[in-house]
Nucleic acid binder design. Sequence first.
DNA 1: CATTACCTGCAA
DNA 2: TTGCAGGTAATG
Length: 289
Amino acid sequence: MPELPEVETAARDLAAHVGGARIAALQHLDWPRLIAPLDPEGFGAAIKGQVIQRVSRRAKWLLLELSGGLTLAVHLRMSGSLFVPRPEERVDAHTRLVLALSDGRTLHFRDVRKFGRMRLLDAAGLAALDAAHGPEPLADAFTPACLKGILRGRTTRIKPLLLDQSLIAGIGNIYADEALWHSQLHPERPADSLRANEVQRLHEAIRFVLDKAIRLRGSTLRDYRTGTGESGENQDHFLVYGRTGAPCGRCHTALIRCVVAQRGTHLCPHCQTLPPARGSARTATPRAR
DNA sequence: CATTACCTGCAA
DNA sequence: TTGCAGGTAATG
């Protein structure tokens, strides 16, 4: 799932709904690896009675700051969601963990594929998590010059670079494809081959697609839910992701799907072209006709 | 850089 | 039955 806009939406909802709430107990856990290396007893003891003082996001991590000084860091990975369900909502087969709150409500972690993880971090652990990630693309500090600096000297293809959390935080497969379409860049362009105006376009596109997705409360393809258990709306606004064969919104050419760095990749073959590699002009095999 | 692993469900 | 899915870590 869950890329920056989805995690941001969940964080904002949870801040509004469980900020200040007290955790009464670990009520349900059916996937112990979720909280490893702690065992259910140790985890339960550590969170019992803690007040959720603040909820925030760093990269694709949800951060629940607890009154005792520890932070419950939650990564949703592919199919996780963390939400306060409506009172009548039941624990289903994919609900991996339930925290009982002292006001009678519950906080559900649901995760079909069981890839999600929770960790209890002290200040040093939190600092390490922060240091492992690149800048937040929606922060003021993320300027075109900042992006240019990240690309400089890197010969890797631009799409996998955008997915590298240690370089830029929070972009995943959907928003990488969307941002590259908006900036009319081929996903296999070498990162350091972008001209100044292309870097500028990419910078603007990244911020545009992420901001728009947050305004629409994230994208729900299958499993993602906001912090209140609702679906997002942004999936109805994709320009390329998952739209193979549909007409490009700029030129009406049929969009294509290919694989780049082992990830399904969607693009317009007319708007997003790969310039000939340097030196290949004279050596390339002439095409037919 | 690519492959495999981690998991489950769903559509072709 | 096969391939694919919003992510990432481990391993050649």
